[in-house]
């Protein structure tokens, strides 16, 4: 589990949100904004008798990556499943909005989002959802200037509204442990039945929405090992690529005809999905 007192030195997955940022940024360049010592906690969890966390589960820091000004937001997956409430959501949205302003002033600044999240925190439901809409608007503004990179390394994965946020980013980097999908497996099982989606069958879930499958389907840009070194290298590599000429959100629209011709009588296999997603848009 992340943040446990004993962690593998070189693992990225096992680090806490704050340590992940520290390992990602150039040495001694990390400056945290709204530190936990400021005690900006959730006003809504306290009212419901739920123990809060001093950073509300999100760490924001400015720093440099390979010398380039970057703002990083990391979600702590261990706190409330990495769910976003008003404060944690506003931290991410507000940081991205300031990065947009910085670029508009002519000061290049990129962003990295380290996503471990089930999506909206249901105890703050509508304010979590509103914050996610604001995060999405800010990502779309920011990615016009400089890359916005999503990292989904697990163990929680990235679900709900924040999976849409990841999909809006310039680049997505995943590990084998990571999962990326709109609906949490348990929710799909409850809504659609166990035949449709067996949430407790881990190999099945990973075969559909795990990092390897997502990479082989072209839905993410990079598939890496769980090490701090490979995470940093992948992030540097994607920052150097700059703003993509066409964003994935636009490229994906070429798949409409392939989806309309898909046989939807039978269930889809991971292999079919890879083939369809890689070839269906006519972008080999």
């Amino acid at each position: 589990m992340s943040n446990s007192p004993v962690v593998k030195d070189n693992s990225f997955v096992e680090q806490s949100a704050r340590q992940r940022i520290k390992r990602l940024l150039d040495k001694d360049t990390m400056r945290e904004l709204i530190s936990p010592f400021e005690r900006v906690t959730s006003p809504w969890l306290a009212k419901q008798g739920i123990v809060s966390q001093f950073d509300d589960g999100v760490v924001i820091a400015r720093g440099k990556i390979d010398g380039e000004e970057t703002v990083v937001a990391a979600i702590e997956g261990s706190f409330q499943g990495g769910s976003l409430g008003e404060v944690s959501g506003a931290k991410i949205a507000g940081a991205l909005e300031l990065a947009v302003e910085e670029n508009a002033k002519g000061n290049p600044m990129s962003a990295v989002l380290i996503l471990e999240t089930g999506g909206v925190r249901l105890q703050e439901a509508n304010l979590g959802l509103a914050a996610i809409a604001e995060i999405q608007s800010a990502i779309i503004s920011l990615r016009k200037y400089r890359p916005v990179i999503a990292l989904v390394t697990g163990p929680v994965g990235c679900f709900g509204g924040m999976s849409i946020s990841a999909a809006l980013c310039s680049y997505i980097i995943m590990t084998r442990e990571g999962r990326l999908g709109l609906n949490g497996p348990l929710v799909i099982e409850q809504e659609a039945g166990i035949v449709e989606y067996n949430a407790s069958d881990r190999p099945f879930i990973w075969s559909l929405i795990g990092g390897k499958q997502r990479f082989e389907s072209g839905l993410v840009d990079s598939y890496i090992n769980d090490s701090q070194k490979s995470v940093r290298e992948a992030v540097v590599d994607h920052l150097n690529r700059g703003v993509p000429s066409v964003h994935r959100t636009e490229k994906y629209c070429d798949l409409l005809e392939a989806f309309l011709h898909l046989d939807t009588q039978d269930q889809i296999t991971p292999e079919n999905a890879q083939q369809l997603l890689m070839e269906g848009g006519g972008h080999e």
């Binding site: 589990m1 446990s4 809060s52 966390q53 702590e76 706190f79 409330q80």
Partner: peptide, 10 residues
């Protein structure tokens, strides 16, 4: 961290 079975100490 305030994760299940864990705590934060400041």
């Amino acid at each position: 961290c305030v994760g299940s079975g864990d705590l934060e100490v400041m």
